[in-house]
């Protein structure tokens, strides 16, 4: 169990997890409410306010702490877990409607004979996506973030407790459809994979530079529709490289299967790196 619950998840729901995160933050402090009320006349006064002798004095505290440090601790714990169990964790990020779940179900269908696969699905509401994934026969767990716009390291840590991915497996984490917020939150994944479909604007890498900067791979999806669109593939790739010179790009179509082999090849190679130090798991 998590010992530090209190990351303000509000109405986050993890399937099969009855642990509720709703709580009052002030509980952590065990306030003496009587004393607190006794000081209310002090609040809101400017720094020049002269305190009577014996009254509490304001003081400065140097804290120098990263705002995301808590999330980063959870992410580091997840990363350690992945490393110990030889799991390749991929964080799939995109706008809603980029074809992420279709891409994922096709990937699972094609790779299932060769690899153990598990999926964590993040959406604000419904378990529809996890059900779609479970229909392929692999383990999947839905996280509903409620009002939240992204998954965080803490939610994923809890999901791992329930999901228990197999040693040496592939773990796909399908983040909430959003090209902004998930960029900042490390989940402990080996790589962020950004999925962009050609039905979206080719300038999305420039409009959402943080996400394309954070991703190591961009999958340009739905290329079977290119003949009907005025999407400039070369320009899109140039934009992505402008934001992130290291980014790799694979063009594919989850519907026709074109380009999917290159994606599988990338997964296989990336997994080999994760399995260094786990000779028994390498196949």
């Amino acid at each position: 169990m998590c010992t530090v619950c209190g990351y303000g998840e509000g109405d986050t729901q993890i399937e099969g997890h009855d642990h509720q995160h709703d709580h009052d933050h002030s509980e952590h402090l065990h306030h003496d409410h009587g004393e607190q009320h006794g000081h209310t006349h002090d609040y809101g006064l400017g720094p020049a306010h002269a305190h009577a002798p014996g009254m509490t004095q304001s003081r400065m505290v140097q804290i120098e702490q990263d705002i995301l440090s808590k999330n980063n601790q959870y992410a580091a714990a997840n990363r350690r877990y992945f490393q110990e169990h030889g799991i390749l964790g991929l964080n799939l990020v995109s706008s809603p409607g980029s074809g992420k779940t279709t891409l994922l179900t096709r990937t699972i269908d094609d790779l299932q004979p060769d690899f153990a696969i598990a999926v964590i699905e993040g959406d604000q509401q419904t378990t529809n996506d996890a059900e779609r994934i479970r229909a392929t026969g692999v383990k999947a767990l839905q996280i509903n973030t409620g009002k939240g716009c992204h998954l965080d390291g803490h939610m994923v840590g809890h999901a791992l407790e329930t999901l228990k991915p197999e040693e040496g497996s592939l773990l796909f984490i399908e983040n909430v459809g959003n090209l902004v917020c998930p960029a900042a939150f490390d989940l402990g994944e080996a790589h962020k994979v950004a999925i962009l479909s050609v039905t979206e604007g080719e300038d999305k890498p420039l409009k959402y530079p943080d996400m394309f900067h954070a991703a190591d791979l961009m999958l340009l999806n739905k290329i079977d529709l290119l003949p009907y669109l005025s999407f400039d593939v070369e320009r899109c790739i140039a934009y992505a490289q402008q934001v992130n010179p290291r980014i790799k790009v694979i063009q594919l179509s989850a519907t026709t299967g074109e380009g999917m082999q290159a994606w599988y090849q990338w997964i296989a190679v990336t997994r080999q790196i994760v399995l260094v130090g786990h000779p028994a798991l390498a196949v």
Partner: peptide, 20 residues
């Protein structure tokens, strides 16, 4: 709007720091 989550991160840091 992940600023809300960031603010929650700030609050968590404040609560821990207040104790120490």
């Amino acid at each position: 709007m992940h600023e809300m989550s960031l603010c929650e991160g700030v609050l968590l840091a404040l609560e821990e720091n207040a104790i120490s």
